[in-house]
């Protein structure tokens, strides 16, 4: 049943010093559909591909608002993401109530990092099967963080996680120098272009399968532009930004690869 003796739980090191359970959890992230995040000097954006279980069902949620100034994009087990999302919401709210300010993004991300690390060191626990991109603004400006099931958290200029995300990352690396000074719209456009790179053949970005999330910092007023998710017809105008190579024909019924999105990933 097991590949070797060292991958039964997250408290056993392999002779090479690896923890297979944590590495397998990272695989669960790759099962999720792709999400992309980019930060500029003024904004942080998240864009995502949503899947639907079958043609008549609704599409999954990929972007979650956490607080006025933070949002997350998820890839992997949605139910694990909801646990982390709830925790982050509570922390942000608590912080806002006690200090009346936006919780610094790094403190927030560090907290879920520590939480996830515990799950990799104690018997009877399992690592979270989800990866996150956390986008937010605080007093020091916009930030983008990546969170992995191992508890690793790193601040990125731009990043992509999920199925076929390597293509998106390649796009982001190619355009890395442009992001810092990009405007809000340009940033979304880059995000969607990166997303497109990850699509399988014959697949299109549609108003059904695309989500866009934006959070920003207005320097003049020192106020935040609250994190907002755009879905459905609201993403139309953003899709038009990247519609240069649009194919003819009606909006394609977005049937998605029949990869499972359910909890059975680690079964």
């Amino acid at each position: 049943m097991f590949r070797n003796n060292y991958d039964n739980d997250s408290v056993t090191f392999s002779p090479q010093g690896r923890i297979f359970q944590v590495e397998y959890a990272a695989e669960a992230v790759k099962q999720g559909s792709v999400v992309v995040g980019i930060a500029s000097k003024t904004h942080a954006v998240l864009v995502a591909i949503k899947r639907n279980a079958e043609e008549l069902s609704s599409y999954q949620k990929k972007l979650f608002p956490i607080d006025e100034h933070v949002g997350i994009a998820i890839a992997g087990l949605t139910s694990d993401a909801r646990v982390l999302s709830n925790f982050m919401k509570q922390q942000c709210l608590g912080h806002r109530l006690t200090y009346s300010r936006n919780m610094p993004i790094r403190s927030l991300v560090d907290m879920i990092g520590s939480k996830a690390q515990i799950n990799t060191q104690h018997y009877g626990k399992r690592p979270y099967g989800v990866g996150l991109l956390v986008a937010g603004v605080d007093d020091s400006g916009p930030h983008l963080f990546e969170f992995q099931p191992s508890g690793m958290t790193e601040e990125m200029i731009a990043f992509a996680i999920g199925a076929r995300s390597q293509m998106a990352r390649t796009y982001l690396e190619r355009n890395l120098d442009k992001f810092k000074t990009s405007t809000r719209e340009e940033l979304i456009e880059h995000g969607l272009r990166a997303l497109k790179e990850s699509l399988v053949q014959d697949r299109e970005l549609t108003v059904e399968n695309t989500s866009v999330g934006v959070v920003g910092y207005v320097k003049e007023t020192k106020k935040t532009e609250p994190f907002q998710v755009f879905d459905g017809h609201e993403v139309q105008r953003y899709l038009e930004l990247v519609a240069d190579d649009k194919k003819e024909g009606g909006p394609q019924a977005a049937t998605v690869e029949d990869e499972s999105t359910a909890m059975d990933v680690d079964a």
């Binding site: 006690t98 200090y99 009346s100 300010r101 610094p104 605080d138 007093d139 020091s140 400006g141």
Partner: peptide, 13 residues
Amino acid sequence: KPGHLNAANLFKY
């Protein structure tokens, strides 16, 4: 310093 508690934040606390 950006990112640090100012007097108003500390007072709230």
